[in-house]
Simulated assay, not measured.
Amino acid sequence: MLEALSPHTAQTGTGTNLLGLAERRMQWLQTRETVLAGNVANADTPGYAAKDIAPFQGVLQTQMSMTLAQTEAGHLPGRAGGAEARKVRGPSAPDGNEVQLESELEKVADTNDQQRFATNAYSTYMSMYAIALGTSGS
């Protein structure tokens, strides 16, 4: 008996969940957008240090790579990657604020473009999936 795959479990021959990857990308973009919005909102806050999250490629590499097991107490533990905000050091204003508004707005625009691209790619994939199943409404 053949089992139909839902679009949420579509996988390549190597076992990579493509839609799961797209979902992680969108979550990363949403987290980055939140962090960047916080930077813009605090552009006039004395002593505020701009933040950003690790690039998605780095997050992807840590999630897709194999981690070593710590079999002895003296062994170093594996490294875990994530999308946590970290401070970005740069030139600061006399009040100690390190937010460069122009740079932050460029990052926001870039993140917005990436979200639009990811959404369009997902929509295109889902349209092709519907056509392949014969459920495109025709």
Rank of each mutant, 00 (worst) to 15 (best):
E3V: 06
L105M: 14
A22F: 05
A50P: 03
S127Y: 05
P55M: 08
S6E: 10
G38W: 01
L2C: 00
L68C: 02
P46I: 07
E106Q: 15
D95H: 04
A10G: 12
G137A: 14
G81I: 07
Q61K: 11
S123P: 00
D113L: 11
Q61A: 07
T34M: 13
L5C: 00
Q100D: 03
T14E: 13
G20A: 14
L18M: 15
Y125N: 08
E104C: 03
S65W: 05
V108T: 05
L68M: 12
Q70Y: 01
A85H: 08
P46H: 13
Q115L: 06
E102P: 00
A118V: 07
S136K: 11
A43Y: 01
T62Y: 02
I131R: 15
N42P: 04
G137L: 14
E106V: 13
G15R: 08
K51P: 00
K87G: 04
R32V: 04
S6M: 08
A10Q: 13
V99Q: 01
T16D: 11
D95Q: 02
R116V: 09
G78L: 01
V40W: 09
E3F: 06
G96W: 08
H75S: 13
Y129M: 03
G74Y: 12
T31L: 07
R32F: 01
N39I: 03
L60R: 06
T16M: 14
A130I: 01
K51C: 05
I131Q: 14
W28A: 10
Q115S: 00
P77S: 11
T31V: 10
L5D: 13
G74V: 06
E98L: 02
A4I: 12
N112E: 06
P46K: 11
P55H: 13
F56G: 07
V40R: 09
V88D: 03
A80N: 09
S92N: 06
Q70L: 01
Y129N: 03
A49Y: 05
Q61F: 04
M64K: 12
N97Y: 11
A121C: 01
Q100R: 09
L60T: 06
K107R: 15
E98T: 15
T71I: 03
K87Q: 14
Q61G: 00
K51A: 14
D113Q: 13
E33C: 03
P46D: 10
D44Q: 13
Q30P: 00
S127M: 07
A4G: 11
Q30V: 02
V108F: 03
T111N: 13
L76V: 10
L68G: 12
G82D: 12
S103Q: 13
A54D: 07
